Simulated assay, not measured.
Amino acid sequence: MKRSKYVQLSMAASVAMAISGCGPTEKTYAVQKKYNFQSVQQCADEKLPVDVCSDAYMTALTEHRRMAPVYDNQADCDADFVADWCQQDSAGKFIPRLGGFELTADGQVTQSQVDAARAQLPASEASSSGGSGFSTSSLLTGLLIGNMLSNNRNSYYSEPVYRYRDDRGSYGSSTLSQRIAKGSTFYRSNQAKYGSGYSTTTTRPAKKPISVASSTSRGGFGSKASARSGWGGGSSS
């Protein structure tokens, strides 16, 4: 009798757990946004967590030191970038100045997160972003990305950005991998002359999960000295 009652209770608990696990799954959306910043402060002004901005800047600076094209003379460096933009290093070689950093963030958001972000929009923007579902509103996407990074979820990566002049003589800012994808070879550089050259696989850093602490704070690493750091140059082309 006791055993029968125990079996019945166990079965009832199993059924209850099964029912609770069969509820409707909330719809999710993939979001991605690329930002092109000239300073940590500019990044923070876009409502992104300041420690993510600082980490992205430091990553781009490290990548710049690792993979920036190196030239024997300034003329060759200027030809690939912008006149008088290159600097001489301690070894007497010439490298382009860092022109900023590109931060790419992506991940998944739920319908409730979309609704919460839409509630923060100005009335004019909210009405144009649609009712249910997810629209491609730039402001809405920015809010979602900012909230996503603040909650230490999903991933991002950053790359150094450089100034250059295109075939039409216009100025622009771009990562090395973007220029390589459009056909640039940097054949004047020492890497191309004496090494294996450049490729989109060697210049694109791997994505990394959010791991920085206190993301919602504006007083973290980089809020003072790094936040003021910036470089000459214009916006992304």
Rank of each mutant, 00 (worst) to 15 (best):
K2Q: 04
K2D: 09
K5E: 11
K5V: 12
V7D: 03
L9Y: 05
S10A: 14
S10R: 13
M11K: 05
M11P: 00
M11Q: 04
A12T: 02
A13T: 11
S14E: 06
G21W: 03
T25E: 14
E26G: 00
V31L: 02
K33H: 02
F37T: 04
Q41E: 11
Q42F: 04
Q42W: 03
A44G: 00
K47L: 10
L48F: 06
P49K: 14
P49H: 15
V50P: 01
D51E: 15
C53E: 05
S54H: 08
D55N: 11
D55T: 12
M58W: 01
A60P: 09
H64S: 04
A68E: 01
A68F: 01
P69Q: 05
N73W: 01
Q74L: 01
Q74T: 01
A75M: 08
D76I: 03
D80Y: 02
F81K: 05
V82P: 02
V82Q: 04
W85C: 06
Q88H: 01
D89H: 02
S90P: 00
G92S: 05
K93F: 06
I95A: 03
I95C: 03
L98Y: 00
L98Q: 03
G99S: 04
D106W: 08
V109H: 05
S112R: 15
S112P: 12
V114D: 08
P122S: 09
S128E: 10
G130W: 07
G130C: 06
G133E: 13
S137E: 08
L140P: 12
T141S: 13
G142T: 09
M148I: 11
M148S: 13
L149G: 05
S150E: 15
N151Q: 15
R153C: 05
S155I: 08
E159C: 08
P160G: 09
D166F: 07
R168N: 13
R168K: 12
G169R: 05
S170D: 07
S170V: 00
S173E: 09
S174G: 06
Q178C: 13
R179A: 02
I180R: 01
K182E: 13
G183Y: 06
G183V: 07
S189H: 01
Y194G: 06
S196F: 03
T201L: 04
T202D: 06
K207F: 10
A213P: 14
S217E: 12
S217W: 13
R218F: 09
R218T: 14
G219K: 13
G219Q: 14
K224H: 07
S226C: 11
G230T: 15
G230Y: 10
S235K: 07
S236A: 09
S237N: 13
